[in-house]
Structure formats: structure tokens, C-alpha cells
Design a protein around this nucleic acid. Structure first.
Lengths: 357, 357
DNA sequence: CTGAAAGCGCTTACAG
DNA sequence: CTGAAAGCGCTTACAG
């Protein structure tokens, strides 16, 4: 591959001049510029980003370590992050932790070794040692979605408490009396917060959340299936299940189906994180939707600020409840206001309703 | 951040010796090794991968450019790729083309500038210029899933023809007489092949595929919705729709639901690419499943071979039909043989069937 | 406006 | 077994 000295030779100038032209430095004569550009074209020259990074001590690269690529929520987040990063002139390298702290550490280490300019992290576990190292070492870090207590970096996330409260009101209004939750790992903030919010909202209504009704999952589908099965094996199973993410809801659906249970007649289901498929599941799943794109954008902006040496504030955006049929509700007769097209819930038509008993 | 010379100073040896220790070079005295290791530990030293890459001319990094991160098929592929790459000591940088050739080129260029050791590509369009440049420039390239005619690099993909033939037999056996397809872009191999296979299989049965029954999509959900709507606006709409990927099937479901159509009573639906949600949609969707993990692994292995200077062969794995209820079939009474757990289709229980008319 | 030179942090023949 | 030196491909004060 052609290097800068080849271009310099071809253009009859020094490497310094080639570099100046390529970096838009103003003090280059029009003639030199033209000859350099012609040489670049002739040789198909592309600057070596590795060499440039070594010299400038910046890679124009952001690291994004997410907990699970198979989770549509994180996929959507990753897409938003990449878009905003690209707009700001950054590339992003995604590391998939697969909900495994050891894999997360592997990716953080690799990213740090590559000297990324900043790190966006949705921690899969409580281990903060490596992250503290990164921060101490001067790498800007921003948490997104999940964070770690005691690590003083900005956090960009959604607050689902109001939506969970709404969900609980919804469940109780529909007559469910034995609500259960499939929780994420207590070692993650979202794992803990969603249970706390659920328990608190139930307590407001005088409803208890017994330990047996708290299933322990890991945010992945299989754990949702197992937790749901354990609920169903209880002498007195719950009559409603709130899955703390969409994958565990998928697993719970698997379990319900395997037992021949009807949703919501036999058991209600709701999920944290809304995804397009929830409109088409049988039945459509009531879910708490996060403003994922906004979170991704805000996270990148915060990180960019941090890289620029400023101290960005944390950002908390509200999540909202999207009612469908999986808890037994009929969708409201009309949309409550202007709603973006992809969020319009279609009521079942007269025709398809006629097929019901 | 500590550099190698800091470690050398701390250990009282030269940078060369530090380097040798870190790279497991045999000729280092035990004493030197111990002192270097102690210094590394004391300083929390981590080698700068940028500098190392510049010197060794290898980045131990693979690029993976996929057509759409929001597509669960590509997400699963990316995960398999990363796993196999990690096992082989590589990192992978994912570029999301979002089905846009311009974005794809942006990512390829960025990856090449970063001097990745090899490129895995599922082309979003027919543009081969940049790819040919890469190959000429000596970067190993392997196509995965999709490929480009006339570019002589190994291809790792699934052959869905037999499965499509099976699907067509299935549709016709169930009495469907006006099958249509929502195709991907004809500029992609999978976009073209899936239509061709569908048309050929129909022809075998003496059934025509009129142009009006070929909807043009771009593999993304919205295009599936639009194509389905156009079908439904026809004076004589099709009675079965085959979506060439899972996202367009999602869009078609949106359209059917908006019109109040029942699947499969009013219109049948099948999709290329199987995803976990298809088990739980209303109704469960009959789909053609690719051996995604195997494809990802094989692609990385081929690329690694290529990087090692050998000439790996292309790999073609068969796809298979997974029958569910969206075309009107009842699942077979028992599994036809050993089936991995996640692929077991549960028949609706007596209990839930009783809720039907 | 331009070039020679230094240097980013490594690795690796080469000489001892 | 070990170190001094060169060099990977850039960028950027510095001097002219």
C-alpha cells in the first residue's frame, strides 16, 4: 500500500506538505495542493489511521460495550450510538458482553489497549476495578442504561418508575392479585431498580411481593423460561408476570405455551423494553418503552463533551407504558393524542374479532 | 499511561527485553522476566496496540460489514463471528450498512484505513469497486450470506433453494393458489436468488408468478409493509405471501393487521430467516431457517485461512423449512427426529384450542 | 509556503 | 541473554 512518502515523491514535494494538504492545513500553495491531490488520486493513497493515531494520540474511535447483542433493545441502542458518533466524526467499536462480566472485561481491556478516545458502557455486572482504572488512566467513560454505584461518571438512562407504577395500576385494575416479577441480576442497576419499582408500586396498593414471586433471571431468554416454569410449579402460581426485559418475556412466553396456558386469561404478561414484535405476539404484549434513540444520542453527546474536556451532566429520560392485550386490557378506543406511526396500536378489526368465541 | 520505556526503567532493563518478555520470546533470563513482570504489575502497564500494529503491520482485527444491525439474522451472525474470531485471537469491528451502499462504503473505507487484517462482508448492493480495491490492495476478503458476482473471493452462505421448494409444495398442498413474494433488492444475491427459487419452484407445479405478485422490498420492515399493502390493493390479491426476510415479514404482518386480515385464513405468510419470535407471533410463522452460527464460524475460519496465505474454499450450507401455522398447516403430530430444544414446536394445548370457535 | 527533523510506542534483526 | 539502533507511517513545531 502506498505510504505518504510515495505520494510525496510522486508529487515532488515533502511528506510534510502531503500531510498538510490532507489535513486541510491552510498554508499550502495552490500548485502544491493540486499536485498532491493528483498524486493521491494516481496512487489511490489512503492515510494509515494506525500511524496517524500513534502520532496524534487520538483514534477518533469510541468503544461501546453492551450487555447482549441478541437483545433488540441494545441493538437499537447500538445503532443510535453509531449514527450519532458518525455525525460527530467518530467510529464505534462494539463489544458484546453477553451478560458475562468476564467477557465485558475482555472487551474493555481490548478497547483500552486500542486506545479508544472514549468508552460507553452498559455494565453487565458490578465489577468496577477495570472501569476505575480506565477513568484514572484518563479515558472518558459514560454509562448508558445501567451504571455502577460509586463510579463517578455521567449516566445516560431511562427512569421507568412512573411507567412501572402505571403498569401496576393497570394490572390491579384488571383484577390481577398475585403479580410476580422476573428480575435481572441484582448486581446490575436495572436488575435491581425494576424490582424495587415494582415492589414499591405494589406496596402503594397494599399488595405484597413475596420472595417466591421474584424470579431470578439474567436478562436472557432461557432464564426467563426457567423463572416462569418455577412460578408455574408453585402451589399457588402468580396470575401476572412482569419480565424485566424483552428477552426474559420471550422465555416466559415459551414456558406458558409449553404448559398450554392462555395469556392473559390464565396468566398476564408484561415486559420492560418495547420491541416491534410485541405488536404481533399472541397476544400483543404490554410493555414499557424506553426512548432508545434519544438515549443513544445523548450518551454519545455526553461522551464527546467529556472527551473535549468538559463535564457533561447525567441524563435521565422517562420511559412510558404501552398497553396492549397481554394483561387483559382492551386498548383504549382512540389514540390519546398524536402518536408516531410506529407506535399506533391497531385495534383488532371486527372481522378478526368475529373469529373469537 | 505508562509506556514500555517506563517499564524498562522500573525493571532496570532495556525496552527490548520488556518487549521480549511480553511477547513470550524464549531467550530472556528468569531474573529479567521476573523483574519485568513485577514492573508491569507495579505500573499497571498495558502495551499500546496502536504502536504494536504500526510496527508489526497486523492489527489482529477483523472487519464485519453487515447490511442491517436491526435484523436479528445479522445480529446472530455477528455474534457467531465475534465468538469464533475471539477464539482465534482476533477482535472484530462491526459496520452497519443499514442496507445503504453509501454507508457500506463508508464503513469499508474506515475499516481499510484502520488496516484490519481481513474483511467479512455481506454486501448491501452491487458496488464492487471499493471491494476490488481492497482485494487488489492485499486485504483478505470473504463474503458471507450475500456476495457479488465477478469478485473472486470465497463465499460462505446458505442455499435455500431446497427449502423454498419445500415451502412451495407446502403452500400448494394447503390450497393456496395465488402465491406472491416480497423480494429483497435485485442488486443483492439473496434478493434475486430467493425470487428465482420461488418462481422456479412454482413453475415446477405449473403455477405462474405474475409481476404484480412480486413486491419490491429492501429487506427492512417498512418496505414489507408497503409491498403487502400494494398486494392487498390489487383487484385480485394473493392468497399467500412469502417475505424474503424476517423484517419484511414483520412489515407484512403490520399491514395485514391494519386491514383486519386473519393469517392464515385470509392470507398465508411465510418468511426467509427464522427468529425466536416467530414461535410466538399470531399465528406462529412458517420460516426458512439458516444455520446462522455455523455460517458465522465458517466465515471467520475462511477469512483466517485467507489471512494465513491459503486459499479457503467457498462454503454452502443448506437452509431448512420450519413449518408453523401461518400457512394453514397443523404442525406434524410428532417431531420427525432429534431436534434442538429451541426448535421444538409445541402444538397448541387442548385448553387453548378450546378457546377457538 | 516549505522541508528536515524529531518523535509517537512499539518490535526485531544485528552485534556482542 | 541483552541492548542500541532502526524503522513502521504519520504529524507538527521549528527554521527558513
Amino acid at each position: 500500500m502506498a505510504a505518504i512518502k510515495d505520494v510525496a515523491a510522486e508529487a515532488g514535494v515533502s511528506a510534510a506538505t502531503v500531510s498538510r494538504v490532507l489535513n486541510g492545513h491552510p498554508s499550502v500553495s495552490p500548485e502544491s495542493r493540486a499536485r498532491v491531490l493528483a498524486a493521491v488520486d494516481a496512487l489511490g493513497y489512503r492515510p494509515n489511521a494506525v500511524a496517524r493515531s500513534l502520532r496524534t494520540d487520538e483514534t477518533r474511535t469510541l468503544g461501546l460495550v453492551i450487555s447482549d447483542v441478541l437483545n433488540p433493545y441494545f441493538t437499537a441502542l447500538a445503532r443510535a450510538v453509531e449514527e450519532e458518533a458518525r455525525a460527530l466524526g467518530y467510529s464505534v467499536i462494539i463489544g458484546n458482553a453477553d451478560e458475562r462480566p468476564d467477557l465485558q472485561d475482555h472487551h474493555i481491556r481490548t478497547l483500552l489497549d486500542r486506545r479508544i478516545d472514549g468508552l460507553l458502557l452498559s455494565p453487565a455486572g458490578p465489577g468496577a476495578e477495570l472501569i476505575l482504572d480506565a477513568v484514572r488512566g484518563g479515558t472518558p467513560v459514560v454509562f448508558v442504561d445501567r451504571w455502577i454505584h460509586g463510579v463517578d461518571v455521567p449516566v445516560v438512562r431511562a427512569d421507568g418508575r412512573a411507567a412501572v407504577r402505571e403498569l401496576v395500576g393497570h394490572l390491579l385494575a384488571l383484577g390481577h392479585r398475585r403479580p410476580a416479577i422476573i428480575a435481572g441480576p441484582a448486581s446490575t442497576t436495572t436488575g435491581k431498580e425494576r424490582v424495587d419499582a415494582f415492589r414499591a408500586a405494589l406496596a402503594d396498593h397494599g399488595v405484597a411481593l413475596p420472595d417466591a414471586y421474584i424470579g431470578q433471571g439474567d436478562f436472557q431468554a432461557e432464564s426467563g423460561r426457567l423463572a416462569a416454569e418455577r412460578f408455574l410449579d408453585l402451589p399457588r402460581p402468580p396470575d401476572a408476570v412482569f419480565a424485566a426485559d424483552n428477552l426474559m418475556a420471550l422465555g416466559a412466553l415459551d414456558a406458558f405455551r409449553a404448559r398450554g396456558l392462555r395469556v392473559p386469561e390464565d396468566i398476564a404478561l408484561a415486559a420492560f423494553d418495547d420491541i416491534p414484535w410485541f405488536v404481533h405476539t399472541d397476544p400483543p404484549v404490554t410493555a414499557i418503552a424506553q426512548p432508545t434513540d434519544e438515549l443513544g444520542r445523548a450518551a454519545v453527546q455526553a461522551l464527546a463533551e467529556n472527551i473535549a474536556g468538559r463535564e457533561p451532566p447525567s441524563v435521565t429520560l422517562p420511559a412510558r407504558l404501552v398497553v396492549r392485550r397481554s394483561c387483559g386490557a382492551n386498548p383504549p378506543p382512540g389514540p390519546p393524542g398524536p402518536v408516531p406511526p410506529e407506535h399506533i396500536e391497531h385495534t383488532p378489526s371486527a372481522r378478526s374479532q368475529r373469529s373469537d368465541p
